[in-house]
Design a binder for these strands. Structure first.
Lengths: 143, 143
DNA sequence: ATTTTCGGCGCGGAAAAACCGCGCTTGTGA
DNA sequence: TCACAAGCGCGGTTTTTCCGCGCCGAAAAT
């Protein structure tokens, strides 16, 4: 329930699962303490702040520069457009999930990337999201 | 601040931004009401519940079955392994982000997909995440 | 140039929620 | 059979949120 909405009083959950409020609160506290619940965060609407363009970017890295990956990953970490990033198997090396306002802003991002990291990136491919069918980090907790 | 941690009292934010608690609470209330803050959610740790294997799956759809995409998307929506899904430009049609326990479970997912949606999916490519460099839905709110 | 209006502030009291100690039940292992 | 530990519900206490009030300042109206 908290993965969908963590903004409800314990009482609501308590009623839903037939437990006392204090039992629910104790359990939630334990989940946080044990690190099952990593954090509680606000999800901001991409539409509301005009970041409706999502692009998946596949990057191929110059083999000669494999040593500089740490620095590259720090760069990505500080790039505000980058929501997620994976180092993956396959023809390409990295996949980035980028959220921007429009194609112009996306282009600016790519130019910044290719400018500041030109030695590292051999080539890239843009997979523009025509539709975001599902968007989340929710994990099924069952089984 | 709330995108990083929404589990703090208004007082803390108030002190950080030099505003009264009530002003902060009013502003947060407005952000929720206006839909800027879409929701507050608990983020559960993939490690803690053993879902450490992330895979990006690229799917190519049979052109003859383009009409059944709605039904396909509903299937994805209900698949607990699928965290996110985009319909994208390029050689492939869909990209899925899948979180599972291990390769065995990933294989089970793929077999379920190819079994139940075999008419739709022409082929797929698995990009296994060797490392998740960055993981989130956070949006920079600046500018 | 003065007045009105309106949005947003801080303050403080009321309502709601979270926290915590207590005694009790239940299931487990010696 | 008994001791123990985990976990429950029940209050009371503390913390947090909610909300009405009066006030201030900027912009619009006179």
């Amino acid at each position: 329930m908290l993965q969908e909405n963590a903004d409800i009083p314990g009482k609501v959950i308590a009623d839903a699962v037939n437990l006392s409020t204090s039992a629910v609160e104790r359990r939630i506290g334990k989940l946080k303490q044990d690190g099952i619940i990593e954090k509680i965060v606000a999800v901001v609407s991409p539409k509301a702040i005009d970041r409706t363009l999502s692009v998946l970017v596949e990057l191929e890295i110059q083999n000669e520069h494999r040593h500089a990956l740490e620095q590259f990953q720090r760069w990505l970490d500080h790039a505000p457009e980058v929501q997620s990033c994976w180092y993956v198997t396959g023809d390409m090396d990295y996949v980035l999930l980028v959220a921007v306002r429009n194609l112009e802003e996306y282009n600016a991002f790519i130019e910044r990337l290719m400018g500041e990291q030109q030695a590292l990136v051999r080539k890239y491919k843009s997979l523009i999201a025509l539709k975001t069918v599902k968007h989340g980090l929710g994990l099924s907790v069952l089984e």
